[in-house]
Amino acid sequence: FAVVASEVRSLAQRSAEAAKEIKQLITSSVEQVESGSTLVGNTGETIGQVVEQVRRVTELVGQITTSSSEQNLGIGQINTTIGMLDQATQQNAALVEETAAAADSLKHQADRLAEAMSLFRQHGRFAHA
């Protein structure tokens, strides 16, 4: 009976130690799971922030694309306007040349008219004398 009692005590002691080890393992596992959960939560937050930054970058790229298109349109309009100004300048230059030629022609006609008047006056004086 003493041998059996000793064996039972020894078995009870080993069971108690095993229970302590199991409790420590469970506590360690719970801590590791909690740590893992925290890491997963942090990772989720980080991924959320990355997704938000990607959305912002995509929005900025869209704005840049829109601005570039607007600038291209504006440059096209400026080029069209410059072409129209060039054409108007050339037309004005041609009109200035035509006006100068007409003024020169009028000057020659005025000179001839003055000569004719001079002759008319000279002949008119002789006729009255």
Rank of each mutant, 00 (worst) to 15 (best):
F1L: 11
F1W: 10
F1G: 11
V4W: 12
A5S: 14
S6G: 14
V8D: 08
R9N: 12
L11P: 00
A12F: 04
Q13S: 11
Q13C: 03
Q13V: 08
Q13T: 10
A16F: 08
E17H: 03
A19S: 14
K20T: 12
E21M: 02
E21K: 06
K23S: 12
Q24L: 09
S29R: 13
V30H: 11
Q32C: 02
Q32N: 10
E34N: 14
S35W: 05
T38R: 15
T38Y: 15
T38I: 14
V40H: 04
V40I: 11
N42T: 11
G44D: 08
T46L: 13
G48K: 07
G48V: 01
G48E: 01
V51G: 02
V51W: 00
V51K: 15
E52G: 07
V54T: 08
V54H: 02
V54L: 11
R55Q: 12
R55S: 07
R55T: 12
R56Y: 06
V57L: 10
V57R: 03
V57I: 08
V57K: 02
T58Q: 09
T58V: 06
G62C: 01
Q63T: 05
T65V: 09
T66P: 01
S67E: 11
S69Q: 13
S69P: 01
E70F: 05
L73M: 08
I75E: 04
Q77S: 03
Q77D: 07
Q77T: 02
I78G: 02
I78A: 12
N79V: 09
T80I: 07
I82D: 02
M84R: 15
M84N: 15
M84W: 05
L85P: 01
L85E: 04
Q87A: 13
T89S: 13
A93G: 06
A93Y: 08
A93E: 14
V96Q: 03
V96K: 01
V96P: 00
E97L: 11
A102G: 00
A103E: 06
D104H: 05
S105I: 09
Q109W: 05
A110G: 02
D111V: 10
D111A: 13
M117I: 10
S118G: 13
F120P: 00
Q122S: 09
H123E: 14
F126G: 14
F126L: 13
A129Y: 12
